[in-house]
Design a protein around this nucleic acid. Structure first.
Lengths: 114, 114
DNA sequence: TGATTTTGACCTATATATAACCCATAATCC
DNA sequence: GGATTATGGGTTATATATAGGTCAAAATCA
């Protein structure tokens, strides 16, 4: 079953996505690409691109990142480069392999009376 | 109408999201938070969080960013700070106001014969 | 080791996002 | 100014993501 979904977002989340949307729109216009062109290249509809540029929080992250990549907005602005990001992935994989697989909370106290 | 959607993604998009997912999972475990706890705080289901940590490209960007924020993974690693990101938004707004509102391609050449 | 909890993988019903339209207006260019 | 194109804002049918559940296996800890 699925309950009606009404999400709330932190300020930081909202503004991060707002910034990303603005950067995408700027980059698109600077490169003189129409919304239709970018949408086609990204394999999405024009209406979807419009939502992305309006910072709609419910767009698929894959679509947003793909558009960003196409117009040249670097995610993780550490690096635009694929090799660098791969290095980071490897590091995070190593780290993950060292961390515990599950997080256990302290056992519930059975002693409820006092 | 809606056509069946089969997306393709660039390598960079895939790996950027892979990295983000790894960072989220690492941070969650380091802070000894269970999947259920984080899901609750983010207002999403546990199954959704699982997809996020598996780098599923079709999750809502808002949900992903919210989880990242909750476990302390900074988007735009320039800054974890809200004020810095706001400054960036303002700059991008100024920039956008100076850019043309629409991108026009050269007029179609009516002269088709040669 | 045994008790307890977390996780991952699945399933289902339904709310919702999506592509693909259309149209009016705005923006651009000559 | 006039012609042309881009954009924004709708609408609709349908594919799909989602919440919420179950269950077995894995992981943790005493």
């Amino acid at each position: 079953m699925r309950k009606s979904v009404k999400r709330t977002y932190s300020r930081y989340t909202e503004e991060a996505i707002r910034l990303l949307a603005n950067l995408i729109r700027s980059a698109r216009i600077e490169q003189k690409l129409t919304t239709q062109e970018v949408a086609d290249r990204a394999g999405i509809s024009r209406s979807m691109l419009q939502r992305i540029e309006k910072a709609d929080l419910r767009c698929e992250i894959g679509a947003v990142f793909e558009v960003a990549t196409i117009v040249g907005v670097s995610l993780f602005d550490t690096s635009q480069s694929l090799t660098t990001i791969r290095r980071e992935i490897n590091r995070s994989n190593e780290k993950l392999s060292l961390l515990p697989k599950a997080v256990h909370k302290a056992h519930k106290v059975v002693d409820d009376d006092f």
